[in-house]
């Protein structure tokens, strides 16, 4: 009893092999494209999570320091070692690890301070945008504030 394959002449079996190879490669190509997309999506998600985590810690630190000092320049100096003149807005270029990096700005952290209608209360708006994205889409934002009583200095206002 010979198997059907073995009864095929050598040249025919080769043709069969090449045909199988073509079908396998075609199917494998399609499967690989789908799987590669899944890997790319996972990698992108993982990178975005890392960014989000760092952005939230960075925003938290900025909010806490601003809350304790009530000064944007002091906040920028404490967090990034930046010396800025008294202004209402500071844009800090950051790398992917949320470290101050004027050369390669993967992220832009914009801290804007505005006076609230309530006397002594200042609001800080922290916005993170993609440094390579022209549209300036917001990646993460936090609103925080500092209250410095207008008439007297009070200890422990940081809390």
């Amino acid at each position: 009893m010979k198997s059907p394959i073995k009864s095929v002449p050598a040249g025919g079996r080769l043709n069969l092999f090449f045909m199988e190879m073509i079908i396998v490669l075609l199917f494998f190509g399609i499967a690989s494209a789908v799987i590669l997309n899944a890997f790319a999506a996972s990698d992108r998600l993982s990178r975005e999570s890392g960014w989000l985590e760092r952005m939230s810690f960075c925003a938290q630190s900025a909010a806490e320091v601003f809350s304790a000092t009530g000064s944007l320049s002091e906040t920028a100096e404490e967090l990034f070692g930046l010396t800025v003149s008294d202004s209402d807005e500071v844009v800090v270029p950051l790398d992917e690890g949320c470290v101050y990096s004027p050369e390669s700005a993967a992220l832009l952290m914009t801290m804007t301070v505005s006076e609230d209608k309530t006397e002594g209360l200042m609001e800080m708006h922290i916005v993170f945008t993609d440094g390579n994205d022209e549209s300036g889409e917001t990646l993460y934002e936090v609103r925080s504030g500092a209250y410095l009583p207008p008439k007297r200095a009070v200890n422990g206002i940081g809390r």
């Binding site: 985590e53 760092r54 810690f57 938290q60 630190s61 806490e64 320091v65 809350s67 304790a68 000092t69 002091e74 404490e78 422990g156 940081g158 809390r159």
Partner: peptide
């Protein structure tokens, strides 16, 4: 302690995070 707040840094497997937090 820094700027009237507590600065916490944790590092594990080459990944490091720092955050400030006010406390009494």
């Amino acid at each position: 302690e820094s700027e009237g707040a507590v600065r916490v840094t944790a590092e594990d497997g080459g990944s490091s995070f720092t955050a400030y937090c006010r406390g009494s």
